[in-house]
Nucleic acid binder design. Structure first.
Lengths: 339, 339
DNA sequence: GGTGTTTGTCGAACCGGTTCGATAAGTGCG
DNA sequence: CGCACTTATCGAACCGGTTCGACAAACACC
């Protein structure tokens, strides 16, 4: 690997001139520019990013921390973020917290130790310490998906209230009134918002929510299955529709109905939030409120890059960007047949 | 951030002694060890990884390059690799080539520029230049999934021949003889091996492969759908079973049959290689040859780490590790009913 | 022609570690 | 006691860049 000193020697100038030429060409004579460019080409010079990082105190890496990489939602997200980062000449370091708060703290420390320039974080904990921890790291952050109230930062997410409201509205229009709700982990930001959308829409339509039909599925397929099992085996007043707060839980619910030989959409309508990979092969095609993943990724990347590029990262006002989900109607929901 | 000089000053020793204490404690007196440890704790010292990288010429990062992160197969793989790396105090930089050869080269250059210690690569190209390119980078490599014949390196993969052989055998035992084969991209390592397993098993059972029933699905869901459509609308000798070389193509085939109102497994059996996310919610449950993802990830990580740790990376002999897939029988395959 | 300003280049310090050769003190042995 | 050898510590060079202040040359102006 050739260094800046090699270039300087061959071009017959000092290393500071070479550096200047490369970073600030306006302040250098045409003749010098030519000589340096030529010498650089001759030895195949590329600047050593590590040496640059050392001097600048930051590396050309950004961190992305999510709670579960295996969820296809994050696959798509990561793909787009990585694309954006690559365009800006950054690489992406990915870490999976597996939903564990201890791991989350450790990973954040590790990343900040590696002097990443910024972090896109989907917080998995809602504990108080996290906000302080993040603030203490003192680096550009973009929160994703789950908003932490305790800390000022950029945030990108979907309108979770709207997502469940859209689906609830859809079900109500189809004539459903006894709607079972399978929620996400109680206490989590998205879970609460989604539940809120359900309640509000029911109320706005003059419907009373039957609390027996509202369960916590903890965002897991198994728990979604179990919740649906409980709901669909109720003696009296079995729901005619199920609304799940996530894709996996909706699939779990579908499976439960399959196993109970309850036909969907014939006997029960099912809808869920989030896309499902290869959703077009799953029968029936599930009605869902899809988050605009690519756009979320692009927005998050841009916000992070802008903050990294700023001379004083705190001069930029913090923004919340809330994107609207898209309602995709499948074959899993159907008008309630008069009975 | 405190530096090694701060520690040296407070401990009342030289910086070289501090460095020695941290990296080579045996060569330092007990008293000095104590003083240094105390001073380090007092100022909250942690070594700057960038400075270390600069001096050592390598960073504590490993690269992982795949052709499509959104494929859940890679999600699981990445999760485990990241876990292994974290244990060894490495971070994982992920990049997606999107199957484009140009991107692949650019990414490899970019990674080597960042002085990653090693790379786990699923090559997307089978062009000649790639092998040379890799060799020129001169760093520890573990190839994954697709083996490049032109280069000496470590390799981890599944026994692709066995995978399709197992499934073919399974179908033959169920009485199928007219088996349609939907292959992966022609020319790709895995695609050829998988096709080979199909042909060999057919031959070993004394069956002749009908070339009209063998199509190329290019590892894409759409192409799998299209291939299945063609196969299942044949006038004469429609296949009684379909074998797809990947998960997505199997799902595509299933969808095609659904759309044609051809019952699976009643009228056609379908089997595929690779797991499908949430495969237990897709009805019918597809019979498949599952790759041992976690184990592949662990093996790949270990091989890479060993080579990184070696004083002379080339002293270790190169290994090929070929793991056996696991046959998981679902409800998509059924004994051929006598007709 | 002297003074003030701009322009182009350079040397040296610096970022924060690692490592090698030198030095000094301590140990064993004839 | 003197010599060889080990052990503990240190100073200085180095990794490969960036950046600041110094300085000389060129230029403008009165």
């Amino acid at each position: 690997m050739s260094t800046i000193r090699d270039v300087a020697r061959i071009a017959g100038v000092s290393i500071s001139t070479v550096s200047l030429t490369l970073n600030n060409p306006d302040r250098v004579s045409t003749e010098t520019k030519r000589k340096v460019a030529e010498a650089a080409r001759a030895v195949g010079y590329t600047a050593n990013p590590i040496a640059q990082s050392l001097k600048r105190g930051r590396s050309r890496l950004i961190g992305m921390v999510v709670s579960d990489i295996t969820n296809p939602f994050f696959g798509n997200l990561l793909q787009e973020i990585e694309r954006c980062a690559m365009e800006a000449d950054y690489l992406v370091v990915v870490s999976d917290t597996a939903g564990r708060e201890v791991a989350e703290k450790a990973i954040l420390n590790h990343l900040s130790g590696q002097l990443v320039s910024g972090i896109i974080l989907q917080p998995c904990g809602h504990y108080l310490g996290l906000a302080n921890h993040i603030a203490a790291l003192d680096m550009p952050f973009v929160l994703f998906d789950h908003k932490l109230a305790e800390i000022e930062s950029d945030f990108v997410g979907t309108d979770n209230v709207l997502a469940s409201a859209m689906l609830t509205e859809h079900l109500i229009r189809l004539g459903h009134t006894r709607i079972g709700y399978i929620g996400g982990t109680t206490g989590l930001y998205t879970a609460e918002k989604r539940k809120q959308g359900f309640y509000e829409t029911m109320k706005a339509s003059g419907l009373k929510v039957n609390e027996n039909l509202v369960l916590d599925g903890r965002y897991s397929g198994d728990q979604g299955y179990e919740a649906a099992m409980r709901l669909m085996t109720l003696r009296a007043d079995r729901p005619t529709a199920l609304l799940a707060a996530s894709n996996v839980m909706a699939l779990g619910a579908l499976q439960a109905c399959n196993d109970l030989a309850i036909d969907c959409p014939g006997e029960v309508s099912i809808a869920g939030i989030d896309d499902v990979p290869w959703s077009n092969v799953i029968r029936p095609r599930i009605t869902m409120a899809v988050q605009p993943v690519e756009e979320m990724a692009r927005v998050a990347s841009r916000m992070l890059m802008d903050r990294i590029a700023a001379t004083d990262p705190n001069e930029i006002p913090f923004k919340d960007v809330i994107l609207a989900p898209r309602l995709v109607i499948g074959q899993s929901t159907r008008a309630l047949s008069p009975s």
